[in-house]
Amino acid sequence: MSGRIYVHDRAIVYPGDLIAEGDFSVPWSPYIQRAHNKYYSTVIGLVEVKDNYFSVIPLKGSKYMPKVGDLVIGMVTDLDVLGWEIDIRAPYSSYLPASSLLGRPVSPSEDLKRYLNTGDYVLCKIEAYDRSTNPILSIKGKGLGRISHGVVIEISPNKVARVIGKNKSMLNNLMTHTACEITVAQNGRIWANCPSKQMEDLLIIAIETIERESYIKGLTDKISQMLKEKKGEFNAKA
């Protein structure tokens, strides 16, 4: 396994940019195209380079690619007698069978609107998904269910990992400074329950900053700093 890697760690690459040449053992990724022994980026992204390994993290894109087991926050777009059609910001609409919510088969005369209606946000898990069917959701599990209070913030699904941070460092940071209860779903939706409107606004500003500057080193500290300062401002005004 050898070759040359032409970009440095954390470089930004563009579609068609040559990343490396040679024989590398990198797993298939839609963000890297291999033509003979050359590896090209297929997106605007950030390259991670480590020894003989490289990967590309896309910096653009607002669609979520479903994965079985992922925690997602969906929005109900339609319903029929057997369940709800839910938008999870994926290229495919997903389905939540009523039986998952009721814990029993649904009877035809039931009015499912009582449980979930169009426009509701719901926290669920992806139960099943493959290339030939749309995702099926499940609502069985602790904490899963209809979101009835708080706020749902949307970010690019590519930035979810950054909002959580290594060992949840960034997420803990946010929760500590804003005192908000935060649930980050893999499909780029964040549910926050904040003690005050001020803290909610603060959290939104912080998340927007993380999204915009996601590839900057030392972002966790920068956000900490920013939150402390802004909180200070609020307190001074009070």
Partner: peptide, 11 residues
């Protein structure tokens, strides 16, 4: 397409 984050072989 690149702006939308859709993977393409090249511009």
């Amino acid at each position: 397409l690149a702006d939308a984050g859709i993977p393409i072989k090249d511009l």
